[in-house]
Computed example of a mutant assay.
Amino acid sequence: MMSYHYAILGSGRQGTAAAYDLAVHGDAAGILLADMHLSAAERSAARVNRLAGRAVATAAALDVRDSDAVVELLKANNIDAFISGVPYFFNLPLARAAVRAGASMADFGGNTDQTRAQLALDAEAKAAGITLTPDCGQVPGLGNSLCAYTMSLFDQCHDLIMYDGGIPAEPQPPWHYILTFNIEGLTNEYFGETVFIRDGQLVEMGCFRPEEYELIDFGGDVGVLEAFTTAGGTSTMPWTWAGQLRTLQNKTIRWPGHFAQWKAFSDAGLIELEPVEVDGHRIAPRHLLHAVLGPKIEAQPDERDLVIVRIIGRGLRDGAEREVVVDLFDRYDEATGFTAMERTTGWHAAIICAAQAHGRTPRGGLPVELALPGPAFAEELLKRGFDLRVTWMEE
């Protein structure tokens, strides 16, 4: 069996989860965890080694803003493929560094403009013999791959309607929400536009559109959640499947009350990036929101989370119009201590990164929904024990 060398740039929550998955499922000879703070990388590597039961992870200090240092680290450690676990705005220069180093790259993405700029490096990536697959993670990422899987269930798919979100398993007032990833990712998701396909046409959709608000009953111990428009969830899918789908859309799900709170923050300008003057200082409202609200919604060690991804697919199967519901429910894992958000984000990126290293992905700039065939991706989910349910609706 061949073995591969991986790197994770940014050894936070999702990066640590990705490293663990590569250690267990990625045929890893070595995993280098690099972070601006060496102590953080060392803690992450120690945890991965303990959970994996072998000394597979090592630590290094790295400032990803230094592209030459990134290239040197990747080359010196013979890295086959790596994951960017740093904020999305670093990913375009990291993709250029990946080309220079000849190492494939996946990242946690979250910003569609950045993602499309990375995919524009397609020719350079092909020439370097590598794959660039941005926008991995929960959604975008796992949702894209599950959409590809849902499409594969039909002879011809017409509609893909996705709902997703990470929520506390036991919501507490006043926020009924816990932050299980970097708050930069949350406010990025709550600002700007996304693209849907409606009646076969690409349509720009803003965040918190009141007319798009829905209540969805997920049954069981979950019950009713609210669903609303946010930015970036469809990622590259509208362009990948333009001309094929009649409908493509994604809405974020939360416990009821979240929409009203955050729409108020948005309407008040608190998610804006344009600085305003406060007591003689210029400050971006978003950064103030991060500083004030972030600590109040940060997940505590004893809090458990739940991730839900639901995709409703409609199309032709065996000559008849059919509808299917594909559900993924994931909860905090007591055995490893990984949250559902860490598992669904980190493990998805690891699945793609391992496929890149193994040569299972085409080379070049590759949208995540095309990285692996849908059925092959579903096999990887089941291998990891994810709760994936496929329910065909009665005609």
Rank of each mutant, 00 (worst) to 15 (best):
Q138G: 04
A101S: 11
E204F: 03
L132Y: 01
P174I: 00
A106Q: 10
R116E: 14
M162T: 09
G137R: 03
E189G: 11
L94R: 01
G143H: 04
R116F: 11
P87V: 00
Y88D: 09
E193I: 08
Y163G: 10
I83N: 15
R116Q: 12
I161F: 03
G137F: 00
L146W: 00
M105D: 14
Q114P: 03
L153G: 05
Q156D: 12
A95I: 05
G200P: 13
N144V: 06
I167K: 15
F196I: 04
L146Y: 00
P93K: 06
A128C: 13
E170A: 09
Y177F: 11
A103N: 12
R116L: 15
H176W: 05
F196G: 06
I183W: 00
D159C: 01
L146M: 15
T150A: 05
I178M: 05
G166P: 05
T112R: 07
F82P: 15
E189C: 14
R96K: 15
I178H: 01
A120I: 09
N188K: 02
R100H: 14
G102Y: 02
N111C: 10
G137P: 06
D159Q: 06
L132Q: 13
P134Q: 15
F181S: 08
N144G: 09
V86Y: 00
A98Y: 03
G141Y: 00
A128E: 14
F196W: 12
G166A: 10
T112V: 14
E193Q: 11
A117Y: 02
Q118E: 14
Y88T: 11
L202K: 15
A128N: 13
P87R: 01
F196R: 10
H158T: 05
E204C: 08
M151E: 06
Y149Q: 08
Q201Y: 08
R100T: 15
L119N: 14
Y88L: 04
A98Q: 09
K126V: 10
D199N: 08
P168Y: 00
D107L: 02
H176A: 09
A120F: 07
D155C: 07
L121M: 12
